[in-house]
Design a protein around this nucleic acid. Structure first.
Lengths: 256, 256
DNA sequence: CGTATACTTGATTGTGATCAACGACGGTGG
DNA sequence: CCACCGTCGTTGATCACAATCAAGTATACG
């Protein structure tokens, strides 16, 4: 429910090199041939650091830059006048955020959950890039389609599933996405750095009830949790709880 | 909760002419200059008729065609194994449906609410069109962005709003979209041809509760309703009930 | 160590789900 | 034109999941 403070700042360290970027296969530039990467890199303005709890952009703001999340977790959300918050998406490394079409104001806000690093792409250079390289434009369409599909699943969860089903569903999704990103040397990446309030606001329930549901899952041995930390222990049991359609299951295996 | 039967059939009447299409300014071909329309028209395969309650496509199906809805109302939805249904979107004339990227199976189903007419665009011709005319490709991105924004609003409604707020919200959205489409000679277009079950499945509540909420709105004089018919009488009061953020309000005025 | 933030647990309330029965409307066929 | 039937809508009684209120504990951080 907290609002956070705006706080994007240029990263002082030497920017990472797109050619050796460990998350590029997940991101917008997946479509770019390796030998062209130093060419595309010029479209990136710079790398930014954003500390935990800081706001990247706010609903209604006009932003002239899009971002690829390089490191950290960021959440997208909207707020109601009465202070209720709905988390729309948890962005993980490789995810593309903040893209809006033709100078429209942002329809949601974004806040860092953990300390994060982002690669910025200014609107004008991005549209030039899309003009010159249709395959990257096509990748954008593909990313949008995938986001849309995820959002439909989310509406389904929040609208029709019980609290425990909805949370199980969300944990499976995060688990699968972490596995995609998990490089052999990074076992800790399967701990989710989320507070129970963030989980509750994603699932559309209250923090108190989220706590009880999480306790239930913990008692069943499905997950382990602590302060801003959740780890999935038994994905299969989680799947049986989540009330998932067969289609969704296969989807999560093939990836996108 | 009904499943419907597949039933797309070629329309026997002479196809309408894109050049005099009354809904083109809302649709994918908005970006096309008038004098090029007979050129783009060749990308349309044909017009189809789809009777009420018939399925256009089903979750998991691989479809090789996208559609612009020319006449009628169509709903997009998903179903859970236990039979619960979530309506994701009500498509109105001019809306673009069924687009999926690169041969992926559909992530939702679509069923006609009223007798409908659709213009079909086969996948291969569409991607050729996108290659040859980047401005139409850009319009696709813009449509996707808009759909995404609507979907975020929907998650917000279903997750954080009360039943009456959620339904008020949905009626405002439909009302505004009908107004956009309403040509002077068509006053009846402001009656929504929805059953209470469809409304309930969109708002994420049960049909019984939807009936009570609708009665409450009727008693307040905000709406009038009958068999598969709802008419908004007092948009302003509806807005005050809907618990809308100021941003959303202006958005609905400027259109997209 | 002290204070913020995050999590837990209990008691009570309330919104909306469920179960059940009936009423109204619209389309169909005699 | 009327009778019938299926779909759709209404209303009441009861129940349950999750919200709310409230107090207390644990963990991280400066």
């Amino acid at each position: 429910m907290k609002n956070g403070y705006s706080g994007l700042r240029a990263r002082k360290e030497k920017p990472t090199d797109c050619r050796v970027c460990p998350i590029r296969n997940l991101a917008l530039f997946e479509a770019v041939r390796d030998d062209l990467l130093d060419w595309t890199q010029k479209y990136r303005s710079q790398q930014y650091a954003l500390d935990a709890r800081r706001v990247l952009y706010r609903e209604g703001e006009i932003i002239d830059e899009s971002f690829t999340l390089f490191q950290g977790w960021i959440m997208l959300f909207k707020m109601l006048p009465d202070g209720k918050r709905q988390v729309l998406r948890f962005a993980l490394p490789g995810d593309f955020l903040g893209f809006r079409d033709g100078g429209e104001p942002a329809n949601h806000s974004a806040m860092a959950i953990t300390d994060s690093i982002l690669c910025g792409f200014p609107e004008d250079r991005l549209s030039q890039l899309f003009r010159e390289r249709p395959e990257i434009f096509a990748k954008l369409v593909s990313i949008q389609q995938h986001d849309m599909s995820q959002c439909y699943d989310h509406v389904m969860s929040v609208g029709q599933k019980s609290a425990i089903e909805s949370i199980a569903c969300m944990l499976i999704d995060l688990h699968d996405r972490c596995l995609e990103r998990d490089t052999a040397g990074n076992p800790k990446a399967l701990d989710f750095p989320l507070s129970q309030e963030e989980i509750a606001d994603y699932a559309g329930i209250t923090l108190v009830h989220a706590s009880r549901v999480i306790k239930e899952l913990r008692d069943k041995g499905v997950i382990d949790n602590g302060h801003r930390k959740i780890r999935v222990l038994d994905v299969e049991q989680l799947r049986s709880i989540a009330n998932i359609s067969l289609l969704e299951e296969t989807e999560s295996i093939t990836g996108f």
